[in-house]
Nucleic acid binder design. Structure first.
Length: 425
RNA sequence: GGAGAGGUGGCAGAGUGGUCGAAUGCGCCGCACUCGAAAUGCGGUUUACGGGCAACCGUAACGUGGGUUCGAAUCCCACCCUCUCCGCCA
């Protein structure tokens, strides 16, 4: 959500930032809506002031038992009744129109975000690790996975496409990855573990920006709730409608949850394998902090995600997303992309975004700075630390052997109950 | 699912349809008294929006949204949430 006052005062820089996102200038239209709203509001308030004054006089007249005067005043106020409801309605609509327009505009990119239309303009920041030199042709996990317990067929029969059942060693490995990540984020990295709601209301999704624009990407329940597409929704909304104590900042939350996505816009993409599912697990990281701390917090969060990949010895690269590739609520985003030998390319496994005060405005999440009377909006950040399903794919493919077995990374051994290698069955 | 109670300022807690943004207490801030503190006394202490250079003025908010009325914290309706009891249940 954008601040209309900021737009009022800086229309040209607002439009310039939108242009970097490839959007048409909008400030003129927004300011016109704002102008209409304020004119109507002032008009309405003046009418109400008149009515209040008269009503007060009626009360006084009646207290003095001057019924004649009271009746005369009543007749006078009755005239206002003609115009008031219509004016009220117009004012409300003008406010709603402005809010709707503002709610549909994505966050403005940070100054240090490269400009570009799509992912081809993303900037590689760094690489870690060296893709393994295979003595054989590495296989796609969708091909050798089933022998290890990755069952797409049974899941398809139960639930349809884009579902999988994990069985045996692969299920254990998946669980080990999730536990390892969660332990690491809660332990070394200091995030508070949360087990949050998976079904949420409209307002929560509006707060983080999935609604009103992206309803088609979500699953909805018959009672009107929604399945979370990411724990970012639940974790970030933990501070909605709150004035958080400054000395409790930054708040750092992590959660291991299933995520549900309709994948409406990605028909035909990644149809094979475990890369893109309607349901997957993710360890999410969310931070809530003061505006002046969010850039440093962003860097820290990326490091927390990178640490998982490094501990698992998975080669990856860090990419700074360009303006055209960022999500709706983000002002700056780093993606971590893990090396997949079967595809001979890096694939997204984590996305870490600084949303500035964009979500905080939509949630009305604030704090009161020391010594200040007014409240300020918090900054919110979120990132994957990591997507468990995709990490499983990365481990399977990077650690595969020619016979179809997979060596478990050492960091996971404590979680595997003595298993160090998955064997095809 | 059934029956009932309730949602008021930072907290506790009053509130008869009319001068109620809201008594009172606590807390908090300032001042006085004091060597200092406590106690005491006095004053102040919500938020959002609009207008104004400003002092300040106006509007709105008593869970949320509607309605009745010249006027609603107060009356009516719907919804949300909390609590108690019963039933069911992992």
């Amino acid at each position: 959500m954008h601040d209309i006052r900021f737009i009022r005062e800086n229309p040209q820089s607002f439009d310039a930032s939108l242009a970097r996102r490839g959007l048409e200038p909008l400030s003129a239209r927004l300011l016109k809506l704002d102008e209409e709203r304020r004119t109507l509001a002032t008009e309405l308030q003046q009418s109400l002031a008149k009515r209040n004054e008269a009503s007060k006089a009626i009360g006084q007249a009646m207290a003095q038992k001057d019924m004649e005067r009271a009746e005369a005043l009543k007749a006078e106020v009755a005239a206002l009744k003609e115009s008031l409801p219509a004016l009220e309605e117009k004012e409300k609509q003008a406010g709603a129109a402005l809010d709707a327009a503002l709610a549909a505009i994505p966050n403005l990119p940070g100054d240090d975000v490269p400009e570009g239309a799509d992912e081809s303009a993303n900037v590689e920041v760094s690489r870690w690790g060296t893709p393994r030199d295979f003595a054989f042709t590495p296989q796609d996990h969708a091909d050798f996975g089933p022998a290890l317990g990755l069952d797409f067929e049974a899941a398809a029969a139960i639930s349809g496409a884009r579902f999988a059942a994990l069985r045996g060693g692969v299920a254990r490995l998946h669980r080990a990855l999730a536990q390892f990540m969660l332990d690491r984020q809660t332990g070394e990295n200091g995030y508070e573990e949360v087990n949050p709601p998976l079904l949420v209301r409209d307002a929560a999704l509006y707060g983080t920006g999935q609604l009103p624009k992206f309803a088609e990407d979500l699953f909805q329940t018959t009672d009107g709730r929604w399945l979370i597409p990411t724990a970012e929704v639940s974790l970030t909304n933990l501070v909605r409608e709150q004035i958080v104590a400054e000395d409790s900042l930054p708040l750092r939350f992590t959660a291991l949850t299933p995520c549900f996505r309709s994948e409406a816009g990605s028909a035909g993409r990644d149809t094979r394998g475990f890369i893109r599912q309607h349901q997957f697990e993710k360890v999410e990281l969310v931070a809530i902090c003061r505006p002046e701390d969010s850039e440093a917090e962003h860097q820290r969060m990326v490091k927390c995600a990178e640490g998982i990949l490094e501990a698992l010895a998975l080669p990856y690269r860090k990419v700074l997303l360009c303006t055209g590739d960022m999500g709706f609520g983000a002002r700056k985003t780093y993606d971590l992309e893990v090396w997949l030998p079967s595809q001979q390319t890096y694939r997204e496994i984590s996305s870490v975004s600084n949303c500035g005060d964009f979500q905080a405005r939509r949630m009305n999440a604030r704090y009161r700075p020391e010594g200040e009377k007014a409240t300020r909006f918090l900054h919110t950040l979120n990132g994957s630390g990591l997507a468990v399903g995709r990490t499983l794919v990365a481990v399977l493919e990077n650690c595969q052997n020619e016979d179809g077995s997979v060596d478990i990374p050492a960091a996971l051994h404590p979680y595997m109950g003595g298993i160090t290698r998955l064997e095809p069955r």
